[in-house]
Simulated scan of single mutants.
Amino acid sequence: MKIAILRTDGSDVDQRQYNSQEIGLARGLAHQGHTVDIITARGAANNPSIEDIASGSDYKITIIRTGYRRIPVLEYGVLTGLRQLLFRGKYDLVHLSEENNPATTLVAFHCRRLHIPYVIYHGMYVVPSGRARTWYDTAHGYLLAPAIRRNARAVLAKTTTARDFLQARGISNVQVLPVGLDTTRFDTPTEASPHEAILSDLKARYPRVMLYIGSLERRRNPMLMVEMAAAMKADTALILVGAGPMTETVRQRIKALGLNNVLMTGALGQEALPAIYRNSDVFLLPSDYEIYGMVLLEALYFGVPCVTTATAGGIDVIGNNHAGAVIDGVGLDDWVAAVRKTTLAAANPEYSERLQALVRETFSWQKIAQRYMDYVSENRV
């Protein structure tokens, strides 16, 4: 089968980028012998660029970069030159993201005219914010969505929360298909991390090490994690990996509290992360909103349990699999208690082994690609 996977948000796909969902799914499908084109932006509609990234006797993965045009006011955008690409590509299936995105609407109508089946893979679970986007979402629901759903081969949701969101909008027969983890970069041996000595010293001084990886921004509540480090400074350290608009605010708060148990590394490449995960006891993700939270899967891959808020990915990945704790809200006492309880349970080696097995058996892209093709072949909404 020849499949087109579209990235419609205007960003590019880099094969060196870790945890690209498009590349991960493409690799899983290629493992079954399918040929996959990933169509994305950062090219020209009249002269798309083509990059072959993998091939074999019965499969091929290619990135095709076409044009992109942003829609004024809505802050959405659409890929340009797409109808010609779909026509020339002779695809058996087209993969789209987000049911209520204008780009999905446009591609769905292209597919209908070209008689190409398409599948929608949805992750959002709240109505988009902003007056213009809310207006569009309402109009979409009444005028466009019925035809898009009627002609879709399948509608898949990344989480049960996203499924419930779609069902509340009148879409039936939505199947939950989780996001996978591409472990190829973590599976490849790397040189020793320059942070090895610092990490070893931190681990030697503190029996418990908390870890956060991601942007230091308001919706991720980094100040909560700093306050946790202050409340637990006698026996617990905190590693903050990443940068963002709150970096300096966080740094100043750490200084004001006189904390010596917090390490801020700044943004790091993927090659540095395995050593950091292996020297951590619990992963923190106190987000107000997460469509999924890929870092949760990364942490579990290294056997590190997670404490997270009750976001869509946190509920499905952590709560439903007893892989840590899911907390309602960001109360300091609740988070401190959850960390202590979780790390106590994780002291049993079998606990970490179970988390690692969970990722291999449930959240690998090969496993998910198998389920994907089953849904696409058997279901029709």
Rank of each mutant, 00 (worst) to 15 (best):
F109S: 03
P207D: 06
K233Q: 15
K90E: 15
K233G: 03
A204E: 12
L96Y: 03
L300N: 06
G28H: 04
N47L: 06
R112G: 00
D333K: 15
V73Y: 09
Y121M: 06
R380W: 13
D137T: 14
L259K: 02
G180D: 10
T104Q: 02
V359S: 00
R278G: 06
G123N: 10
K203H: 12
N101T: 03
L224G: 01
N19M: 12
H122N: 12
T40D: 09
W365E: 00
A192V: 15
D12I: 11
D9K: 07
P305V: 05
E98R: 05
R205F: 00
R42L: 12
A204G: 08
Y125F: 12
T66K: 00
L355R: 03
T35A: 14
Y301T: 07
A256H: 12
L273T: 11
L74H: 01
D182N: 07
E75N: 15
L156W: 03
G324C: 09
S200I: 10
L300S: 03
S49L: 02
L344I: 07
R354N: 13
G313D: 09
G28L: 07
Y118W: 08
L199R: 07
L296R: 04
F109L: 10
L211Y: 12
P207G: 00
M228C: 12
V107F: 10
Y59C: 08
M225S: 11
R360Q: 13
A346D: 02
P102H: 04
T80L: 04
F165H: 06
G324F: 05
H115N: 15
G43Q: 05
R131Q: 13
N279C: 11
M228D: 09
V119H: 04
G258K: 02
G81F: 04
I120V: 15
L86A: 10
N261C: 03
R16C: 12
L344Y: 09
T62Y: 00
G319P: 04
D182V: 04
D328I: 12
D12A: 14
R88C: 14
L79D: 05
I38L: 08
T309Y: 05
A230E: 13
V241S: 07
M225T: 08
V179W: 09
M264K: 01
R360P: 05
S377G: 13
A30E: 09
V94Q: 00
N46S: 13
L85D: 04
Q17N: 08
L144Y: 05
W335Q: 01
R83Q: 14
Q270L: 08
D52R: 15
N348T: 09
T62R: 12
E298Q: 05
S193E: 06
M246K: 14
D201V: 02
G56L: 09
V304Q: 00
I254T: 01
C306H: 00
K158P: 00
S352D: 05
D187V: 04
I116M: 06
R149F: 08
I315Y: 08
